[in-house]
Write a protein that binds this DNA or RNA. Structure first.
Lengths: 137, 137
DNA sequence: CTTGCTCCTCAAGTTACTTGAGGATGTATG
DNA sequence: CATACATCCTCAAGTAACTTGAGGAGCAAG
């Protein structure tokens, strides 16, 4: 039942230092220690660590996760959790739109570069025109 | 012709400390100083700063930008620039695909949350099931 | 001549961790 | 039982790319 930090890390998909780090910043409270001073983790901790891991994968910041965990701990209500998610959704949508535009720009840059100057000198390289058009003024 | 750091920053779209920072890390070399010790910028510097700014907007790292600038300075060839751009393009494509999946997940989470527990306690909040499904085991 | 903006340098803070030093303990093998 | 190797501990510093702040000087306008 009681797991070492290494096992907790493996099961939750975090690295060992990261698990300690989460304890340091207060995302996990009161990790019991064995007589040898080593941390002992139970299922609730693994669950919490997995939640954090997944949320990070989804791009949520530690601050956002902290507020979700407060909901989970019953210290604020579910509406708050929805707010966090919706706010983050808007950010993600925005970011994705930006990436889409960026992707097109990069593609154009690479294609033009390939057509005009691969292996050649930098003088004719269109990348610099693409990236800094009319920079002088 | 000779501009203050404030003007250079405004024209290139960077903040004043950022412009100083780029000098510190060697992206800009040898900024002349006036008799009062203040930095003086000319058009080539503005151009370079604008290039850096745009590249950062495109998501390129300082390391990547440094190698592009080396091409621009004639210290490596154009093919290298294309490689940087293509490598970055692959990263962007990957990232955008991930964001797309994430967007769908967040949307589902918010909808389910809204349907079941807005204003209620966290006990029924589906967000936690969505984010950490079967975390205990 | 005083107010207020801009400039200077140097140091520390930010985010979310990772990496490393230095040392103790646990587990497997000879 | 001894030795090797993995794992654990704490504390400190490093990472990217800047931002923010302290403390002080210069310059232009009213």
């Amino acid at each position: 039942m009681a797991m070492s930090i290494g096992e907790a890390a493996r099961r939750s998909g975090n690295s060992v230092p990261t698990v300690r780090y989460y304890e340091d910043i207060g995302l996990l409270r009161s990790i019991d220690r064995g007589p040898n001073g080593r941390r002992l983790y139970g299922w609730p901790e693994i669950s919490r660590l997995s939640f954090i891991r997944r949320s990070r994968d989804l791009g949520l910041s530690i601050v956002e996760i902290r507020s979700l965990l407060e909901v989970s701990d019953g210290r604020s209500d579910c509406g708050d959790a929805q707010t966090v998610v919706l706010t983050h959704l808007a950010v993600v949508q925005q970011r994705r739109a930006e990436l889409q535009a960026l992707e097109a720009t990069l593609q154009t840059m690479a294609e033009r570069c390939g057509a005009t100057c691969v292996g050649g000198s930098s003088i004719a390289c269109t990348i610099f025109e693409d990236v800094s058009p009319g920079a002088s003024r």
